[in-house]
């Protein structure tokens, strides 16, 4: 259940943003991506999650092993917390949502409509979704946005528990989660230059 990325070049709007990326993620490990805004972390995570094709290189991971969480949580305002979680656990073929509710301290909110939650509570619900997917590799884009300190700790605990259970996590975040298992990868040096050697970049057929 390991994820590995080989010589990956990714594009945003047809322009290469990161090139020559190599990394791998073993079970029980976490990898934190850092880099300035706009460097292409979100694009990288979307590529790893399989939402967009890489320009070159490849992403190796077992099929259906990635749980992806983006900036927006995919919550339905008109469904209650339980209904939102139940929906995703049905989609991913699992039944029990109580562990997820407990891990993110949502027990008091179960009957509330998701639309009435605060931003931080919504985020917690969005992260609880990861637990009901039952997938081993978490790919998380800025998971701690709008979380308070206590909730960040809650999230770090959930990640740690996930790693201890043999899962792994790829995160883009600027906050120090205090994860001893985590390595940090600064993607800044992989920024694609104007003399990109990768064929297909810059619509080079047009140059």
């Amino acid at each position: 259940m390991s994820l590995s990325v080989h010589d990956l070049t990714i594009t945003r709007g047809g322009i290469p943003v990161l090139e020559g990326l190599n990394f791998s993620l073993e079970p029980g490990r976490a990898l934190i991506l850092r880099g300035p805004n706009g460097v292409g972390k979100t694009t990288l995570l979307r590529t790893v999650a399989g939402l967009q094709p890489p320009l070159s290189g490849r992403v190796d991971c077992p099929p259906e092993s990635i749980a992806y969480a983006a900036h927006s949580d995919g919550l339905k305002a008109m469904l209650s917390v339980t209904e939102n979680l139940n929906f995703w656990s049905d989609v991913f073929g699992r039944k029990d949502i109580s562990a997820a509710i407990q891990a993110f301290d949502l027990a008091a909110l179960t009957d509330r409509m998701a639309g009435t939650l605060s931003a931080g509570q919504k985020r917690r619900l969005g992260l609880a979704r990861l637990l009901v997917t039952g997938r081993p590799i978490w790919v998380l884009d800025e998971p701690t946005v709008s979380l308070d300190t206590a909730s960040v700790r809650m999230f770090a605990d959930a990640v740690r528990a996930h790693l201890q259970a043999g899962g792994s996590a790829l995160l883009a975040t600027h906050i120090d989660l205090g994860l001893s298992e985590a390595e940090v990868l600064d993607v800044g040096p992989f920024r694609a230059g104007p003399n990109s050697t990768v064929p297909g970049g810059f619509d080079e057929g047009f140059l």
Binding site: E64, I66, A67, A70, S72, G74, K76, V91, F92, T133
Partner: peptide, 14 residues
Amino acid sequence: DWEDGSLDLLATSP
């Protein structure tokens, strides 16, 4: 579903 991100999540679901 596009606006609230559900489509992205559905696309990565089984």
